[in-house]
């Protein structure tokens, strides 16, 4: 009986570690930057953005928080460029903004990447996207502003669940 219990506990531990380790590895990248002297935050995926047309990005890609002027009901094309330093699978580019404020036209990108709206996250999610180490990808979103005003579009790559 004792052996049986030991066996069950060991199996439980093995299974738990099997599921936990990849998540713990991903978790080594912090969710929010650590602010402090001499501390640099490094992410496995870089993210830059610019505006452009439906066909191509115009202007230089930047990573800073910039402002974009647009006209209600007129589409604006947002381009995002990312490079991964690791092999990563099932990533989603998250654009957090209420659906009532902005409509992002559903599209299917090469490789089956699609845009959906997640009510739970309050964000448009484009994915799944897989990267090999050193891969660069460009994704364009056709964004239609629906309401006048000032809004913030919060964009980042996330690993879902």
């Amino acid at each position: 009986m004792k052996h049986a219990i030991k066996y069950v506990v060991l199996v439980t531990l093995l299974v738990a570690f099997t599921f936990t380790m990849p998540a713990l590895a991903a978790e080594t990248t912090p969710q929010s930057p650590i602010v402090g002297p001499g501390l640099n935050v490094t992410y496995p995926v870089s993210l830059l953005w610019t505006t452009g047309t439906a066909d191509r990005a115009v202007g230089d890609y930047v990573s800073d928080h910039s402002q974009l002027q647009c006209v209600q009901d007129s589409p604006v094309y947002l381009w995002f460029k990312s490079t991964s330093s690791q092999n990563l699978t099932n990533l989603y580019l998250s654009l957090e903004i209420p659906q009532e404020v902005v409509h992002i036209v559903p599209e299917v990108f090469p490789g089956g990447t699609t845009i959906t709206y997640s009510s739970a996250d309050g964000a448009y999610l484009a994915g799944p996207v897989s990267f090999m180490a050193g891969d660069t990808s460009e994704i364009c979103f056709r964004v239609v502003p629906l309401q006048r005003g000032y809004y913030t579009l919060d964009v980042q790559w996330i690993k879902e669940k």
Partner: peptide
């Protein structure tokens, strides 16, 4: 948890 794998960008949209 949902894990962030990239830097975060805030695009300010001034809709006129």
């Amino acid at each position: 948890a949902t894990t962030s794998l990239s830097n975060n960008i805030d695009v300010g949209m001034l809709v006129k």
